[in-house]
Amino acid sequence: MTVTKLFKEFLDSEKAGGFTLIACTILSLVLANSVWSESYLHLWHYSLGNHPIEYWINDGLMTLFFLLIGLELEREVYIGELSNLKNALLPIAAALGGMLLPVGLYLFLNYGTSTQSGAGIPMATDIAFALGVLSLLGNKVPTSLKVFLTALAVIDDLGAILVIAIFYTKTLIWSNLLLALGIFAFLLLLNRLKVRNLIPYLLGGIVMWFFMLHSGIHATITGVLLAFAIPFGNGNEKSTSYVLQHFLHKPVAFIVLPLFALANTAIIVNSNWHYALSYNYTLGIALGLIIGKPIGIWLFSYLSVKLKIGKLPDDLNWKSILGASILGGIGFTMSIFITLLSFSDGEHIDNAKIIILLSSLIAGVLGLFYLKMNLKNRKA
């Protein structure tokens, strides 16, 4: 399988970023439960321009993360795994199963209750963490498995973005939304006119973000829209999309996501933390990530191949697909992100975060050991 230079760069940055995320999460938890707890927690709520720092990270900097996801999705659609319909249908089916079953399990336990809004929490896979765990197996991992997991994670992140836009919009201000979409249309026009300079797209993106922020729809959606407005061309190293994606890799992996982890895992874990396991909404999250994700991903992948909709790569088998499916239960970034939109009660948010961290840890360890056993005889 041919792997583009940019995709390899994406994999490398995501792997290293995954380890950075783990380190930042541990550091944040330690500081939040240390003698510096009060100062550390206050840091993220320090007001900057009438909003706390945490707000600017979640609503501002995370737009860059969504922009990078959008650029990677665009590349996959044009020249990557998703450019061939037969190849694309396998990760698309897998992502669909990996979204529907976790949401179904969550709703089974929470439908009609005040925590029903958390249904989107267990539906997305954290690319950085998943690829970080996969990298621990070294060159025993087939390239096609890395591509499958990446495509799957990108697609279900897109699904999560759509869910955020549709179901987590409480109040819609049409005037601001239409202005944001008008700017998006203008940027698409620039694309059609073959304007390749990045500056007008970035300036337009900032203005679009401002109006989207005040429209009621989460502002980070701007990142994905902007990605598809930026010219892709032939996708070579001189293309506008390539240049921006190349530039964003390291800032997103080593600044944006670590800051997100530090700000959103500052959780005080008291002696009664285990009671967080006893609520329907936390149980729904855990079952969705640990059980729903792997079963949904594997089952829909299997059905797509058996029904001759999708195609299993020659160097993969159903055991390796199951291993990747288990890693799909690592939710972290997107799961925490949707938690912040789902609940307003601080206790609900902290309990959900604890369960997300535990479930992602379990999924990561199980997936790592399962794949290590399955791939141990594969030649390096």
Rank of each mutant, 00 (worst) to 15 (best):
L109D: 05
M373I: 08
G323Q: 12
E72I: 13
Y78D: 01
T150A: 10
V207T: 13
P313L: 06
F129N: 00
F167L: 07
K319M: 09
L90G: 02
G60M: 14
A276S: 15
T113P: 11
K146Y: 05
L188S: 08
D59T: 02
S47D: 10
L361D: 02
L105Y: 01
Y168C: 06
N374E: 12
Y106I: 12
I230M: 02
I166K: 12
E74L: 12
Y279T: 15
S360E: 08
L158F: 13
M212I: 11
W174P: 04
S28Y: 04
Y242E: 08
Y281D: 08
N317Q: 14
L100M: 14
T171P: 05
D156R: 00
G205K: 03
W318A: 03
D156C: 07
L244D: 01
F343L: 04
A32M: 04
F184C: 14
F108A: 15
S135R: 01
L188W: 10
F337N: 05
L299W: 06
W298D: 01
A363K: 00
E76R: 13
I321P: 04
L198K: 07
D156N: 09
T171C: 07
V154M: 06
L225M: 12
V256Y: 00
I297E: 01
G367C: 02
W36N: 11
Y106V: 11
E38S: 12
G204Q: 06
A124H: 11
L366H: 08
A130V: 05
N270D: 11
I121F: 07
F148A: 10
F10T: 14
I57F: 06
N176R: 13
V305Q: 08
N139C: 08
Y275D: 15
I295L: 15
A165H: 10
F148Q: 11
G182W: 09
L316W: 08
M123K: 06
D12N: 15
N58V: 07
A94C: 14
L198Y: 10
Y46N: 15
G216N: 01
P251F: 03
M208R: 02
Y370E: 08
L152F: 12
L188R: 13
S342H: 09
G223E: 03
L136R: 00
L11K: 01
I356G: 01
T20L: 13
M208G: 06
L283R: 14
A88W: 09
L307E: 08
S335L: 01
Y168G: 06
